[in-house]
Amino acid sequence: MIYARRAWAVVWKDLLVERRSKETLNALAFFSLLLLFVFQFALGPDRERLAGVLPGLLWLGFVLAGLLGLGRTFVAERENDCWEGLLLAPGDKSAIYVGKLAGNLLLMLAVEAMLLVLFAVFFNLDLAGVLPALGLVVVLGTLGLAAVGTLFAAMTANLRARELLFPVLLLPVQVPVLLATVKATEAVLAGEPLGAVAHWLQLLAAADVVYVTAGLLTFDFVLEG
C-alpha cells in the first residue's frame, strides 16, 4: 500500500508538472505534426505503396516522439537538486521507477493516440475496425519502449552527452520490441485476426516482462550512481 502510494505520488507529480509546463506535450505534438507532413509529401497518395510502409512509419513516429519524451523524464529532477531529494527519500527506490514509468506510459499513449488520429486523417485510413487489436499492439510496444527508456533516461540524466547517449543506448535494446510491433501492426492493419500475430504478441509481452523486471531490479543502483 505504501509502495503504491509512493509510486502514485511520482505519477501525480510528473503529470502535474507536465500539465503546468506543457513542455514535453507541446514539443511532441508539433514534432508529430511535422513528421506527418514529411511522410505525406514523401509518399504521396499511392495507397499500395502506403500499405507496405505504413506500419514502419507509424512506429517510426512513435519511437522518435518517444525518444524526445523519454529523454526528458528526469529534467525536472535536475532543478533545485531534486534528484538528491529522490535519493534521500526513504523506502524502496523501485517505487520511483514504477511512478516514472507509469507517467511516461500515459504521456506516450496520449501522444500516440493523437498521432494515430492524425495518421488516419492524413493517409485516409479507416482504423475503426482494427482499433482494439491495434490498441493492444500499441500498448504492449509502448510499455517495452517506456520501460527501458525510463531506466536509460535515469542512467544518462546526469551525463553531459545525455542527448547523444540516450538514443544510442536505447535503440539497440529495442530491436525485439520494434520488430514485433511493426510485424504485428502490419498484420493488424491488413485485417488479420489477433490469433495470426499471437507469436509476435508473445514476444512483445515477454520483452515487456523482462524490461520492466530489469528496471525494477536495477533502478536503485542507477539512482545511487
Partner: peptide, 29 residues
C-alpha cells in the same frame, strides 16, 4: 533519521508549496 537542506532546496518549480510538501511526504510513504 536525517534531513538535508543543501544549495538546491529539493523543490519543484512548477508545483505550489502545498503540492511540493504533499509530494515529498507521500514519497516518504
Amino acid at each position: 533519521h536525517l534531513g538535508l537542506v543543501a544549495h538546491g532546496a529539493h523543490v519543484y518549480e512548477d508545483l505550489t508549496a502545498r503540492e511540493n510538501l504533499a509530494f515529498w511526504t507521500a514519497l516518504g510513504g
